[in-house]
Design a protein around this nucleic acid. Structure first.
Lengths: 164, 164
DNA sequence: CTTCATGCAAAACATTTGCAGCTGG
DNA sequence: CCAGCTGCAAATGTTTTGCATGAAG
């Protein structure tokens, strides 16, 4: 699903709920529909400063909370940095890969967790509703950078984002 | 590993580091060595009010932070309740099963995540260091309670903790 | 026009920090 | 003794809330 399609969907959802589409809201939706880097409230605020210099951070909190309640945004808390990050592109549970050095967040294409989750449900009698899997590590770029310090001649940076 | 063994280990770790074993600290260690229900700071504070009515909550924060830095306590943030919970019994990454109704936390005995984690590492080039898997659902007891509301005659509560 | 969103400021909240005094070893 | 811990209070940083103004529909 492209960011544009996703944006249209978010707009449609708000319209159906008879929520107002103010310019501020639309801009927030646009950022969340892409969710590049899984932005925090603060980051959304900063990225929109140019377009809306007077916008209050409370407005962003309120819009994000609204979308969260509608199930259209995934909230990811990162206590290490004391912030919550948001994914409006894929609002359903999916694994995240977090670089502990540069704090980049990737969506790795690993197999479904469904079998694992079903097993856990059977064993414990729980009715499983949701899940969260975070993998913490060092991304290829940061690994190269660290090796560079020790060895002086680092391996060339890999292209792309390290995904396949 | 029994709670007593775990407590001895924690005491030994602090001694090795030449940290002082005050009565307050020992009491905190005792609670964390069991970590029944994965207590929050506030819960540790309340449970120790009887024994140490004048103890400051800052003392608990400081001791828990110390143990966290020594790798002897696992910190689990739960933004939904706005608290962090602690596991001093199993300070290494392991899956958690959280009841969204009664907030109980269990350690399900599901298979290792290692293959999954290794796959993700290979596919993305990340050096994986750690992970966190939380499964959210409704525990057997809360399921029975909910059915009871609709049907009037609930199935008998299951014994044990729902685990196997 | 009416309702709802905005923006500001104050409040709420968990957590951290500074520091004087106490105490474990 | 005296380094390091305790307890209190103040500070911090994020998130929430109340309310008057303003704009969407």
């Amino acid at each position: 699903m492209t960011p544009d399609t996703r944006l249209s969907h978010l707009v449609a959802v708000l319209k159906r709920r008879r929520c107002r589409l103010t310019p501020q809201r639309l801009a927030i939706l646009r950022l969340l529909a892409q969710s590049v880097g899984h932005p925090s409230i603060e980051e959304i605020y900063e990225r929109l400063q140019g377009e809306f210099p007077t916008m209050s951070i409370a407005t962003i909190y309120k819009t994000v909370t609204l979308l969260k309640e509608l199930g259209e945004v995934l909230e990811l808390s990162f206590p290490e940095e004391g912030v919550k990050r948001y994914d409006g592109a894929k609002p359903y549970p999916h694994p995240h890969l977090i670089c502990v050095r540069c704090r980049r967040i990737l969506d790795p294409e690993i197999g479904s967790l469904t079998p694992l989750v079903e097993t856990a449900g059977r064993l414990t009698g729980f009715r499983i509703l949701s899940h969260r899997l975070d993998l913490y590590g060092v991304c290829p770029e940061c690994q190269a950078r660290e090796e560079g310090r020790e060895w002086q001649a680092p391996a060339p940076l890999q292209q792309g984002q390290g995904g396949i």
